[in-house]
Design a protein around this nucleic acid. Sequence first.
DNA 1: AATAATTGATGCTAAAAGGGTATCATGAAA
DNA 2: TTTCATGATACCCTTTTAGCATCAATTATT
Lengths: 298, 298
Amino acid sequence: MKFGLRHIRYFIAVAEELHFRRAAERLGIAQPALSRAIRYLEKELGVDLFVRSNRSVAITAAGQTFFDGCLTIVNSVAHVVENTRRVNQGQIGVLRIGYTDTAISGVLPGQLKAFQDQQPGVVLQPHHDVTNTQLQKLDQGVLDFGFVTGPINRSGYEQCPVQSERFVCVVYEAHPLAARKSIRMEEISGEDFVHGSSKDWQQFYSYLFPLCRRSGFEPRIVQEAYNTAGILGLVASGMGVTILTDNVRNSIVPGLVILDFEDVDENLQTMAVWRSDVMSGSKKLFVGFLRDDPLELS
Amino acid sequence: MKFGLRHIRYFIAVAEELHFRRAAERLGIAQPALSRAIRYLEKELGVDLFVRSNRSVAITAAGQTFFDGCLTIVNSVAHVVENTRRVNQGQIGVLRIGYTDTAISGVLPGQLKAFQDQQPGVVLQPHHDVTNTQLQKLDQGVLDFGFVTGPINRSGYEQCPVQSERFVCVVYEAHPLAARKSIRMEEISGEDFVHGSSKDWQQFYSYLFPLCRRSGFEPRIVQEAYNTAGILGLVASGMGVTILTDNVRNSIVPGLVILDFEDVDENLQTMAVWRSDVMSGSKKLFVGFLRDDPLELS
DNA sequence: AATAATTGATGCTAAAAGGGTATCATGAAA
DNA sequence: TTTCATGATACCCTTTTAGCATCAATTATT
């Protein structure tokens, strides 16, 4: 098969017009060139595609078969080109996105939905993982984006803040502080603390512990849970108090009271992070989206 | 889209090797030519298909999409070429075949089956029609082959004998001649005859009437039916006798007796006929089959 | 650190493919 | 018969494509 798409396009024109001169006109070439191209095609195939009497052109059965195939081929080519361009521009693609407990209970769902609305051709694959696991998967190329806690400091990565939440104290209704609207950090220095497992909540602790130390105490953790819901459950049952972020207000559990801190100005940052080297079209689009979207403060 | 199949083949080689020199080797061209061809392709598409660092080549997401598409395209092309060649050689195709009552009750079914076994890719479309209708449809190009009664005499047509049957006389059991094995034509000159409708059985009559006249009588037709089964039914009910061909022995009806003629040597010829101008591959194959196949005498 | 080796890109030239104009041969229509 | 329209052919020019030598950049080796 030494013919090209050109021959196929020429052949289609002749097959549709059944007239070499008109077909040549349509193609914007001279008639002899077309005649030769078709002859060449027939020679290559070893098949007579047309029966030319001097006054008319008829297509053979084999020619008809070839014609049908040619239509599917040019369609196929156009389709492939179109798709390739769309993938290049990111309108089609897959984004594997990691998220933390904190991220998913905040603005992330809304952001993903907003992006999905803008780019319906991009498939978003969310993966629930803690910050460290997400960073590992980004290294391995298993994730395209991470939504993690705290600014990270790695070469070859870029990041962008997506969420900033105040810390709050969560106590059970019967607790002495439950009547208050807001408290100071030092007031809970003596409390029993419920919190996330030290391994998975490492990044959160790296925020929290310095805050406690600044107020002069080390939190005494008496119970650990594996996720936010678990922590809130333990607090509600009177095991102790906990420090979480503002967005626990989105998931109200009866029996709990949420108190602001008067003396804590630092917020928990959730960052979108991604490798700056590999940049698919969809990834570029998502980065643009993250940067254009104004930071929503909770 | 100004690129050709050549670019696609080149691209596939590079995408599979991820190495320009090796890909060029595989294609049997020099490396610079390949580099330029791919660059051209990328420019035409407006898409980077590969990321070339000086030491390695990686395919982009868009490139991967294009690659997948390219595989389907070259497959499609190969498939279309293959099919076209097969149609050209007649291994694939449609043959519209007309047949008469007489033909279908004789050797035709066996012949069609034999051809079908040789050429399983050819679709045979049988159409039941009397001789005249078949000839009309052949003129219109609606049929490719006719299996008709008697040699025909038309310019632009070819024909080939496929069946030759002796005439027989069919009488009911109670008939005086029923005890005989064979008779002479003149013995039934006074009988009542049952036969096919004069319009549709015209060709048969053109055989039969001269035979009767040669024996000195004109058959007195008292009842007409539209097909062989109808005729036999009327004979069995004692309406009269009829003259048919030998192959009525294939469809035995109780109450009937079949008698050979002692003095009739002429046979009823069934001919395959076709237009000699339009010759598709399948048609050529079928003609070859008809000519090679020895004439089966019943 | 210096050198060798390998990779894809570039510049130049030759060959091949493709196209245009004029013209021919043929069969249908007038 | 003449005229007309059609596809094929001949000849020449343009564009495309390939090959060769070489470059620039990076990696591997010493």
